[in-house]
Nucleic acid binder design. Sequence first.
DNA 1: GCGACCCTCGTTAGCGCTAACATGCCCCCC
DNA 2: GGGGGGCATGTTAGCGCTAACGAGGGTCGC
Lengths: 363, 363
Amino acid sequence: MEVPDEIPRATSAPRVSRPRAAIMSDVGRLAGVSHQTVSRVINGSPHVRPETRDRVLAAMRELGYTPNPVARALVTGRSNTLGVVSFDTTLYGPASTLLGIERAAHEAGYFIIIASLKALNRVSVTDALERLRRHSVDGILLITPLQDAVEALLHAPKEIPLVAAEAGPEESGIPVVQVDQLAGATAATQHLLELGHETVWHIAGPPEFLESRLRIKGWRTSLAEAGAPVPEPLVGDWSARSGYEAGRRLGADPAVTAIFVGNDHMALGVLRALHELGRAVPDDVSVVGFDDIPEAGYFLPPLTTVRQDFDELGAVGLRLLVGMIEADGPPPTVPPVAPELVVRASTSAPSRVIRASTSAPSR
Amino acid sequence: MEVPDEIPRATSAPRVSRPRAAIMSDVGRLAGVSHQTVSRVINGSPHVRPETRDRVLAAMRELGYTPNPVARALVTGRSNTLGVVSFDTTLYGPASTLLGIERAAHEAGYFIIIASLKALNRVSVTDALERLRRHSVDGILLITPLQDAVEALLHAPKEIPLVAAEAGPEESGIPVVQVDQLAGATAATQHLLELGHETVWHIAGPPEFLESRLRIKGWRTSLAEAGAPVPEPLVGDWSARSGYEAGRRLGADPAVTAIFVGNDHMALGVLRALHELGRAVPDDVSVVGFDDIPEAGYFLPPLTTVRQDFDELGAVGLRLLVGMIEADGPPPTVPPVAPELVVRASTSAPSRVIRASTSAPSR
DNA sequence: GCGACCCTCGTTAGCGCTAACATGCCCCCC
DNA sequence: GGGGGGCATGTTAGCGCTAACGAGGGTCGC
């Protein structure tokens, strides 16, 4: 090995790695081969004699050598790094998806580099894509639940593999992974309808979110198919606070006996509003949420909700992306991840049906 | 400009960037200077005539040139990328801290590359550090709330700037940013004591977590200082479920009138357990949480809790790290982020004090 | 028995950039 | 007015790696 000399430097700058890390030629020298042969061993070339390979491997071990990914990226244009464009938010969905992505990336041997955006619009998404591309990521995964982002994707560069998560229909030609929102909303609405409720009210998420629209659509369709009246949906912003406010309004109307809420956090606010109004859940009003956050089972009462497996979603997205990168073929279409209705204690048959000012026993 | 030729390739592999991205020499050629001058312009060297600079800038714009960060990283060893070692979990604290880090990194012009770990132990942390280092990150931020991780840090490489978040005392000589756990636990406990409770029970987080220990310590000290009896703390795992179980046990004891819970999620479980046991909150039992998650204000009843500004914590940590990288000096000591007691509706004076089997009015 | 061919290596040339030195050139001073 | 000293630039040499080609030696065929 080289002398790990301790030459006192004139500059006080703490030079990185005093015992400078071994490079390929060091390994080659120690193993008595050229650096190129070392490269062959590392990249699993078949044209290396087994005993040479062993010598190289031993030398690598002895020197504690690991290849420099940056140098490799410079020449190959590949970096074993994936970009994730994420909407800057604490929202449960994107955060959990990110987690699933990370986990799967780690398993697939990729690093994740994150570009988190304050706003999701055409300019910011395009910019993030470009920055990531310049960092020579091998592919990019987008967590882009907003309509505006979809528009940016229409003009996305074609040279780099892209996968969008939670990004709605494949208008952009970019492969999409998503949870089946329609199925989820339908399951929630039908559950309430089957319980005997005359109709189901809805507190939706912000209209910019594709999920909001899809859930509204699923809810509305189910209602229409059942011949139930379709009330005007209220709109929240996913927060418990907005759910609380919507809950106060809805709870004041005695005709309301069943509410399908756009997510669990808003549902929590609804629960509190209903409690304050003296409306018992589920006896007076049934409530269904969406997401199945880990706490949902501990609400008062435990919340019936639609489970979205974000972790799985992220993993599916990542595997699709890695597949596109490594197989280099056309992206396969991935079926949406199925949501699951989790029935707990916030829903029951209506004890009575009150319409406007008329009250009558149900059925 | 070169001819962006469309030579049909023998290989069917979709070669990246057909109209190959401009490089420095392209810009130089167009501006009539050498590539080195372009480099000078980019790096803000003062030794460039203003009109030359303008010509170069114009050429860059015309070609849509952006420097290749990988090539730059190879030669400088710096990449404008920061590594984050994060405990693989959905825990609110680490997740929020990560978010704060991202936000601040973006502002500081850095990318974040994440190494998320399944387990936090010496081997995994050391390995993550090494992998990140090889990717030539400029610095590493660790979100390592576990004791085991601290031990790994003791043997961390010294060549690369490191900052630990939520990592307890600076045993390792690595600068740490954290929320003042002792102050938070003290505030919670004293609040309950001042309300007139004889003592305060505690449901702690897992003992591997440094925060758990610190909060126990703060709680215990406050109790001791007030001359209040110190009950044995129960132990949960941060989940609502574990809080529920601990709550069932504690709630069954009529002597328990005040509980300081290690985090809000467990507090939610406690609230449900108490509700099931017919113990009113706050009339029969007061409950204080920790974290102030966004939903805490919508629990039934709204939860009194200790607010930790994780977002700020992440930002502070990142700024410290960037400071270390760019100033190259010794890391300044950063004061812990102050927690804040948020009083809501889950705490009140005890309506009566019941000791073991004796009942007597409070004071 | 000799050319064709494959296997196993080595040598060379970059990837796109920055660092270090070299080169003119103008200005200024004694 | 000639040399020293900036200034603005160009030239060269890498960073550590892979790709492309080349070379030596053995094997096989006819």
